[in-house]
Simulated scan of single mutants.
Amino acid sequence: MIKTSSRLLAGAALAIVPLLGLAGVASADTQSVNYSCQGKAAGTTSTLSLQQNVDSSAPATVAPGGSLTITLAPGLNTVPTKAGSFTVSSVKNLTLAVPVPANATVNSFSLSGGSGFGTASVAQVGNNIVTSVTGPINGGAQFQLPALTLNLTAGASGVITTTLAGTSFTDAGLKFTTTVSVFGFPIDAPTTCFPSPAPTLTSTTIG
């Protein structure tokens, strides 16, 4: 049973990798992000590493007190139908956190576009802007997460950098649940992830 649960967890975590595929922003920089992930179910814990490219767009410079816009635009993805030897029923309850950059003030943020993910929302939670997708998104289904736009005001000086949130499994920046079918029974595998190391997605110099 322990071996079965371990395979389930590893497959469940891998099943969600496409959710972070970000693409399609003009003049974007592409970063390869390494995530450390931990999944738990049926009393068993499994850890693994995930790698994902992220495209981001921001101006190279901005005047002190000036306005700037940062955009993250997801591309089209497909939920896998298999997690190891198990069938993926759906994925749900995904949250992805982006820290508010230092040396800037948030004026507004919004989501636009996307399809196939159920209901999506965005909110500021502490010092993070968090995109939430409820799902469920069925195994084998195509979907596109909405684009996230951040409208900021630059501070007096310094550099405005953007990254992805998360420093540990208990301070995760990416969370999700994959429901898999094991011997005909649905089992949820909650998974928490953090970028290791945290990437610098964009850098805007004030001046």
Rank of each mutant, 00 (worst) to 15 (best):
S36I: 14
Q38N: 12
A41L: 12
A41S: 10
A41D: 02
A41N: 02
T44A: 11
T44P: 10
S46I: 15
N53R: 08
N53D: 14
D55H: 03
S56G: 09
S57F: 00
A58I: 01
A58S: 06
A60T: 11
A60E: 06
T61G: 12
T61I: 10
A63N: 06
G65I: 00
G65Y: 00
L68H: 03
L68K: 04
L68S: 04
L68Y: 01
T69C: 00
L72D: 01
L72Y: 02
P74C: 06
G75A: 03
L76F: 05
T78G: 05
T78L: 04
T78S: 09
P80E: 06
P80T: 13
S85D: 11
S85H: 11
S85Y: 07
T87F: 03
T87C: 10
V88W: 05
V91F: 08
K92V: 10
N93Y: 10
N93D: 15
L94R: 06
T95R: 03
L96P: 05
V100W: 02
V100H: 03
A102G: 15
A104Q: 03
T105E: 07
F109Q: 10
S110T: 07
L111N: 12
S112F: 00
S112Q: 03
G116D: 05
G116K: 02
F117E: 12
F117C: 13
F117P: 03
G118I: 06
A120D: 08
A120Y: 04
V122K: 11
V122T: 14
N128W: 10
V130T: 09
V130C: 02
G135Q: 10
G135R: 08
P136K: 03
P136W: 04
I137N: 07
I137L: 08
A141W: 10
A141Y: 09
A141S: 14
